[in-house]
């Protein structure tokens, strides 16, 4: 059902943030909320996923603090609404990117999202300071086991090396880089193992939220970028 374009009222609420009427320029206005964590999930075939689906489900009830954004569900056609995405980023203090490792990198749509949304003048550059002071956490699952990510293993380099591009991005754009959350060996992990990891994930996210200063720096603003 979800593959139908959100032309009707019902789907709209699920898939995209509610858009109030806006000026002729079409600048989107996001709903007001107090959530400070934005969890972006990028999995092209969630229906097949074992680990990522379990992680996502394990934190689903944290909706008071977390805005969930299933990227492949919202932009199956890769047609990303840049304004909406920028506003969404600006509205949160903690950005979580959750994805399976594909060819030592992110799935394609997450990369596309970076290319399209993290623009000069928004995320970086002289006037691009909108993401300053936020925190970025990558939650990554890999098929390879921990030993594979060692000099003698099949992937040769430690996992941290493969996440350098994201780390550098965070650095360039003024975000704090949180210690990545990694789950290795996804081909072998059993259900009990997944449950343990899901609990660990939940705990990690809760800790991040709890550690936020109460300054209430950027609760949802109601203006477009």
């Amino acid at each position: 059902m979800k593959s139908f374009w959100p032309f009707g009222r019902r789907k709209r609420v699920i898939a995209k943030p509610r858009l109030a009427a806006s000026g002729p320029s079409g600048g989107p206005v996001l709903e007001r909320h107090n959530r400070r964590m934005l969890l972006i999930l990028a999995h092209p075939a969630l229906q097949r996923s074992r680990v990522n689906a379990a992680l996502y489900a394990a934190v689903a009830d944290m909706a008071d603090d977390v805005t969930f954004h299933d990227l492949y569900e919202s932009y199956a056609d890769f047609s990303i609404d840049v304004e909406v995405e920028q506003q969404r980023l600006a509205d949160h203090d903690l950005i979580i990117l959750q994805f399976p490792m594909y060819w030592y990198a992110t799935p394609a749509l997450l990369k596309e999202w970076l290319d399209m949304v993290w623009l000069h003048g928004f995320a970086y550059g002289r006037s691009g300071t909108r993401l300053h002071g936020k925190t970025l956490l990558c939650a990554v699952t890999t098929g390879g086991e921990p030993e594979a990510y060692t000099p003698s293993g099949s992937n040769r380099f430690p996992i941290a090396e493969f996440l350098r591009p994201m780390e550098a991005t965070a650095y360039l754009c003024g975000l704090a880089w949180a210690e990545p959350f990694i789950i290795h060996d996804t081909f072998q992990i059993d259900d009990a193992g997944i449950a343990i990891q899901a609990a660990r994930y939940r705990k990690r996210l809760a800790e991040l939220i709890a550690a936020l200063p109460v300054t209430n720096s950027a609760p949802a603003t109601a203006t477009a970028a």
Binding site: F4, W5, F7, G8, R9, R10, K11
Partner: peptide
Amino acid sequence: DRGADVVE
């Protein structure tokens, strides 16, 4: 208006 959920 009549209650369709999705129109195209």
